[in-house]
Design a protein around this nucleic acid. Structure first.
Lengths: 164, 164
DNA sequence: ACAATAATCTAGCGTTGCTAGATCGTCAAG
DNA sequence: CTTGACGATCTAGCAACGCTAGATTATTGT
């Protein structure tokens, strides 16, 4: 979406958008924050609806990919378009923190130092989404890849990492 | 880079660029293909310089992240800017195939059906690079995350996947 | 009723990707 | 040596982009 088209969409002119937001990045950031709220809810739902203990990871992973592939424009705002949203700094936006925590919650039962494993889990999910969307890996093998990631955490993940 | 700036750089006007390439995406694709050649060489080097059997995975993973973080513009051309390069189709470009094979070569000793595991490995590496570059995960924990990914493959990877 | 203030728009700047038409250089045929 | 064809290159421009200054309209307090 361009600012001009967005302005047309809401039936206002561009300057009213720029009086509410500093620039394009700020608008994308606002959309991204909404996206993080949504994905947090989706991940928490997926974790809740897991029947067995082991299925939570798989459910959450599938929900993450479902979100990324089902709402590509929103996911782009959250992860590929330039924004001023940083995570690993002091004043992390709560919406980002909440999404991370939703992932960490399903990781926690499997390891002590969840932070590193959650980051790695998140990276794997993001990579799977990105590569599948750009046609670099086979969509048909998605479930097998998810199973791989889940097994890597549930199977070998109970030990603490090297310098945990 | 913009086409205008690129045209200035090579000291020609824009139309000569457009007489050699169909459009911007085609130019980015050409750059991306060069990038795939380079990363293939870097990954093969990393695998060769591995002393022990287990260190190949770690070396290659570190080399991948080093490439992605050290040449951000080139990596963008390969993975985030729109191109017409598809992987999982019939006529896959050989440069893409070679990069994938370089990853698969270090995966092969650890599992029978390397394709799925290589895709997952690649996705994890790409996700780590993307999230670290956008400031979403802690740069200081990079080595621990790499160790996690490596252990997931070397440790639990010797069994064949579910529907291998 | 009138002035002050807030909200909104028109019009424009500089930049982008891309292209049509003019211009220039090269070279074979006469 | 001239002419004409052909290919390469450039100038100039289009539509769309992010963004903004200045004019204009609406709203409000007195």
């Amino acid at each position: 979406m361009t600012i001009r088209r967005l302005a047309d969409e809401i039936e206002y002119s561009q300057p009213v958008l720029y009086s509410h937001f500093e620039n394009r990045d700020a608008i994308v950031s606002a959309v991204a924050l909404e996206g993080f709220k949504e994905i947090t809810a989706a991940l928490e739902d997926a974790a809740r609806q897991a029947s067995a203990r082991g299925s939570a990871l798989k459910n959450v992973a599938a929900a993450y990919l479902g979100f990324a592939l089902g709402r590509p424009a929103l996911y782009d705002a959250m992860f590929v378009l330039p924004t001023d949203l940083r995570f690993a700094v002091a004043e992390t936006r709560p919406e980002l923190r909440a999404a991370f925590d939703a992932l960490a919650a399903v990781i926690a039962p499997f390891c002590k130092d969840a932070a590193v494993v959650t980051e790695t889990f998140w990276a794997a999910l993001h990579g799977l989404a990105a590569l599948e969307r750009s046609g670099r890996i086979r969509p048909a093998a998605r479930d097998e890849r998810i199973a791989r990631v889940v097994r890597a955490i549930a199977g070998a993940g109970s030990r603490a990492p090297a310098r945990g």
